[in-house]
């Protein structure tokens, strides 16, 4: 059942022309950033050549590009997740799902997995240029891989938030805006001194602190847990919200 829903969601996403335009724009910006980064690297590379322990190509090109890709994905994901449930509300097809022998959690999981599968496309597009560096130089594959994991986790948690907001309203654009506002809040939220090590809930909630370690090649269980918690919370809320659709007022 979940598979049927996920497959349906993936084919819907692949069939929507808007998504392709979005992917194309994303790729255009990423390619341009990649080019800039590469040019800059070529100017600094001779100076670094003689230093011991100087940052390599993965640090100087892949890591910044992953950070830019993350920022771009944060703006793109709300647009991709907005129709997940709200479009079903709007067209009335939600009644097909609600009257079918499937539970709300199956509906949410199916939709979520379908969306994640589609998100592997922009992530692949984002990491492909950096992987191509391996043709001419040596990449730190370990660091590169943690960066990729970071991007995937970001997709997982942010799209879960998007899915939740999509269950809240029947206006897709409103869902996108709410998702974007939430992500933006998570992005900027931090204690005034800006220190990531400072205690407190605020600094823990901040998204960047759980993203940059990945691009630096660090795989912290704490960061994994953060994304897992964010994902599970958002999905659980989405299931509850969908259940509310059937519940008495």
């Amino acid at each position: 059942m979940i598979r049927a829903l996920a497959q349906r969601e993936l084919t819907r996403a692949l069939g929507a022309p808007g998504n392709w335009v979005l992917l194309a724009l994303l790729q255009f910006v990423l390619a341009y950033l990649f080019l800039l980064q590469l040019e800059w690297y070529q100017t600094v590379a001779p100076k670094l050549a003689n230093q011991v322990g100087a940052p390599g190509v993965t640090d100087l090109i892949a890591a910044p590009l992953f950070s830019s890709a993350a920022a771009l994905l944060l703006t793109a994901i709300p647009l991709l997740t907005m129709p997940l449930i709200s479009e079903e509300y709007r067209t009335g097809t939600i009644r097909l799902l609600l009257s079918a022998p499937i539970s709300s959690s199956e509906i949410i999981l199916g939709k979520y997995l379908g969306c994640l599968l589609f998100l592997t496309a922009p992530v692949t597009l984002a990491i492909a240029p950096t992987a191509s560096l391996a043709i001419g130089t040596q990449l730190d594959w370990g660091q590169w891989l943690t960066g990729v994991i970071g991007l995937l986790l970001l997709c997982a948690s942010v799209s879960a938030i998007g899915l939740f907001f999509s269950t809240v309203t029947r206006t897709p654009l409103l869902a996108a805006m709410s998702t974007f506002a939430t992500i933006l809040l998570l992005w900027v939220i931090q204690p005034a001194d800006g220190s990531a090590t400072a205690g407190g809930i605020l600094s823990y909630l901040a998204l960047p602190g759980h993203l940059t370690p990945f691009t630096q090649g660090l795989l912290n269980s704490g960061d994994l847990l953060y994304h897992l918690l964010l994902t599970c919370t958002a999905l659980a809320l989405a299931v509850l919200r969908l259940d509310l659709e059937r519940r008495p007022l």
Binding site: R12, T91, G92, T93, R95, L96, S99, P101, I102, S103
Partner: peptide, 21 residues
């Protein structure tokens, strides 16, 4: 047992729940 009950049920809402794509 909503799952079992709904297996025995076919429903056409007033607005047919069609996916246009």
């Amino acid at each position: 047992s909503p799952i079992k009950a709904k297996r025995c049920l076919g429903y056409l809402p007033d607005n047919p729940p069609l996916y246009l794509d």
